[in-house]
């Protein structure tokens, strides 16, 4: 089932045409990766999905982004509920300079979420779902910036869970991590796929090949090719895709 679909999505930064007629379908409970050289628009595309680009002045968009058949580009779209539904993990792990515990309860506090569960239970479940509970159960009060980068990135994912998103956007989530930590985050992504739809932007083609079900290749603002990951990496249809994945540029 398709959960996100863009129809002829165009985006301009002032005069610069950053996305050109992008049509991408994203399957529910799958991992979709977007690859392409620097500046191709892959992060821009990702950040349209929770309207984070709105923060940049001089942005203009046309076309449609349908999330569960609702066009989120329509004026009057409730950005708060959109962003609750579509969580984001950033390139650099960016926990707040607070305790582990407070990082996880931040989302609950701002949304004033009342739940039958106690805060302690929510923190425990969130940490368990990112496989961090055993490491951190005795360090809940310790400062989040004292954790390793990998733990910080996991914590950033855990921080999203109490807000109950359906979709997780990941913008090069492993680029600040070493290969072993990267492997462990990838394992976590497989685990999360059961409950969430994941869209990941990555520079690392091996990562895209390892983790994702579908892959989109972007070049100069266009989605050149979109297909099953196995197809893209073994038998791409377009010459540009082949050139990129065989390392001729990028």
């Amino acid at each position: 089932m398709t959960i996100i679909k863009t129809n002829n999505l165009n985006l301009w930064y002032k005069k610069f045409h950053a996305l050109l007629d992008v049509n991408i379908p994203i399957e529910k409970n799958s991992i979709t990766s977007i690859i392409g050289p620097s500046g191709c628009g892959k992060s821009t595309l990702l950040r349209t999905l929770n309207r984070m680009n709105d923060l940049i002045e001089g942005i203009r968009m046309t076309g449609e982004i349908l999330i569960e058949n609702k066009n989120i580009l329509l004026p009057g779209t409730d950005l708060v509920s959109l962003r609750k539904n579509v969580g984001m993990v950033f390139q650099r792990p960016n926990p707040f300079p607070l305790s582990v515990y407070k990082n996880i309860t931040f989302g609950l506090e701002i949304h004033n979420i009342k739940s039958n569960d106690t805060l302690d239970n929510i923190v425990e479940n969130s940490l368990k779902s990112v496989l961090l509970w055993d490491e951190l159960k005795d360090k809940l009060k310790s400062h989040a910036l004292n954790l390793t980068l990998e733990q910080q990135q996991r914590l950033c994912i855990a921080r999203l869970i109490p807000v109950k998103p359906q979709i997780l956007l990941m913008d090069e989530p492993c680029s600040a991590l070493d290969p072993i930590a990267t492997g462990r985050i990838e394992e976590l992504m497989f685990e999360l796929k059961k409950n969430y739809t994941i869209v990941v932007v990555t520079h690392n083609m091996a990562q895209a090949a390892r983790v994702s079900d579908d892959t989109g290749f972007m070049l100069l603002g266009r989605l050149v090719e979109f297909n099953k990951t196995s197809k893209i990496f073994t038998n791409p249809e377009k010459k540009e895709t082949e050139d990129y994945i065989t390392g001729r540029y990028g």
């Binding site: 984070m52 950005l79 708060v80 962003r83 609750k84 950033f90 960016n94 701002i110 949304h111």
Partner: peptide, 26 residues
């Protein structure tokens, strides 16, 4: 850091909540 604002907004906080909870304390 700008990232504090981004994270807070990406979690669905309003601009004022972001300032109040993610920026001002720091």
């Amino acid at each position: 850091p700008q990232s504090f604002r981004e994270v807070s907004l990406s979690l669905g906080a309003t601009k004022w909540q972001t300032i109040r909870h993610a920026v001002l304390p720091h």
